[in-house]
Structure formats: structure tokens, C-alpha cells
Amino acid sequence: MNGDIFAQVNLPRVYRRRKWVNNIILGLTGLTVILAGIPLVWIVIYVILKGWRVINLDFFIHLPTAMGATGGGVTNAIQGSIVMVIVAAIIAIPLALLIAFYLLYYPQTRLGVAIRFSTDLLSGVPSIVIGIFGYALFVLPFKHFSALAGGLVLAMIMLPVVVRSSEEMLKLVPKELREGSLALGAPEWKTSLSVILVAAMEGVVTGIMLGLARAIGETAPLLFTALGNEHYDVFGYIKQGIATNQSLWEIFHKILAEPTDALPLTLWKYAQQPYPERVEQSWGVALVLMLLVLLLNIGARTWLAWKRRQTHG
């Protein structure tokens, strides 16, 4: 409509020029979006094409072969990533929720401000610095590189992500819900956990999934804590443990106390290899890692959007 009017009336040149500038610049912003999309499309397509070729069942269930030999898989890295992310989640999620509740109840106190600042700081500290910290705190005193140390540093990476997203989500819960629950005589902790948390659950879960995605893709802090292990095999440890009458605790200890590989760590090692088999496999690792991270991300966001639409009609 607008355009029609402009076209019919013989406008002074300055108007036409302004309209022209407007169209060109706005068109350019559209172009930048396309440009920004190129690397993503390039990476995703290439990783899928190259990675797909090396992915088969063996890739998921076998340990790596010796350097230069064909075949073998990266089950050590897959299992290691899973174990460390579970450790990180067990530690980080409850802690993050408690902190988020604290920030919800005491946002403007001096401690509240300090904690928000430290959360921001923790998420801003380069992950390699967290790696050094993890080495000094979790590796040196115990004289052992371990899955546990790796899990702990990943928890430190995950913590601020989950704190911030959960806090945002908890804040969105209407005050009346809390007041109503308290008025009915429910204690504060129960109100928090079974009213506020439940009401904000979708958002909180989304935040947790984003935190998991962040943790699973981290390499730098694992260099000095998990070290790497081509023989890491949880099922093997369990089988071996049963065969040699070990207690549950001993098996558990073995799983957590051994040096461990992780998908990004393996990718980093394999990508810088002259052996063509390893380089081929590194694309496969990249594919698995990328799918995990992107699916966690897309899944979290889509789920949230869907739930929101459901509840808000």
C-alpha cells in the first residue's frame, strides 16, 4: 500500500533517495544473515558427509585400535563423556537450583549481588583457567587423573549456565503461587520445590539441557584432569569386577578414578594426527559430538516453545 502511494505521487528526489537507502541497507542486513549461515551449513553438511562414512556399530562399541591400524571405535570416548557429564550433572544441578532459589529470594542483598557477580564471573572465566584450577585442586592432591576430576571441572562449567537460566525461569513464576502455598501452611522448602519449581519446570529443564550441551562439548578443562584413556570401558570394568569378586564400591571407584577419554578430547587428539584412519575417525567423532550438542539444543528449545504454547493456549 505504502509503496503504491510513493509510486503514484511524484515525490521530491530526497524522498526517493531515502527510500532507496532504506531498501539497500535493509537488504544488506538480510545478506549478512545468509553470510552468517554459511559457516554453519558448511560445517554441518561437511561433518555429516565425512563423518557418516566411518560411523557403524563398531564405532560405538569398540575400543580404539593401535595407531595406523584400521577399524576400532571410540567407545572409550563415548562412555567417558557420558560418565563425566553424569558426574557433572549430579553435582551441578542441585547446587545450581539451590543457588537460583537463593537469588530468587534474596536478589538485592549484598550476598545476592556478590553471588550474581561470581556466577557471571565463573561463566566468563576461560575454560582453560578452570582446567588449571581443576588440576591443582582435584588431580594433584589425589595424584591421579580421573573421570571424577573431569566431571568436577565440567560441573564448574555447567553451574553458571544452569544457575542463570533457572533463576530467569523461577522469576517468571507468579508471586501469588508462592504466597498461596505459604498461606495454606506449607513450609518454604516445600513451596519452593513442589510449587515454584514445578511451575517453572519446563524452563529449568531447558536450562539444564543447555548446560549439558555446554559441558559435553568442552575440551580445554579436560586436558589436565581427564588426560585421556584408550582403554576406558565401563562395561569392561563391571564385567572384570564381577569376575574378580569386587564389591560394588570397588567397581564404582574404578569407573570414577581412572583417567578417561571424552568425545571432544578424542577429536582434538585425532584431528592432529598424520594417520589417515585417525583423521577419518575424527570426522565421525565430530558428527557424534555435533549431533549430541545440537540435538540437546534444538530439543531443549523446541520443547520449551511447545510447552509454552500448550500452557498459554
Partner: peptide, 24 residues
């Protein structure tokens, strides 16, 4: 020795190809 033992080592990449073979 019937108990499983894991030995952890790290270091030079100079002998790494043969060590990985040996460890296999």
C-alpha cells in the same frame, strides 16, 4: 595377580606408535 590392574603412564610421543601396539 588375578586382580585387575590398570597402569597409567604418559609422556613421549616418539615411541607412541609402538607403545599403543604393545598395549593392544
Amino acid at each position: 595377580e588375578s586382580k585387575a590392574v590398570t597402569l597409567n603412564g604418559a609422556g613421549a610421543t616418539f615411541p607412541l606408535p609402538v607403545y599403543t601396539e604393545w598395549n593392544q
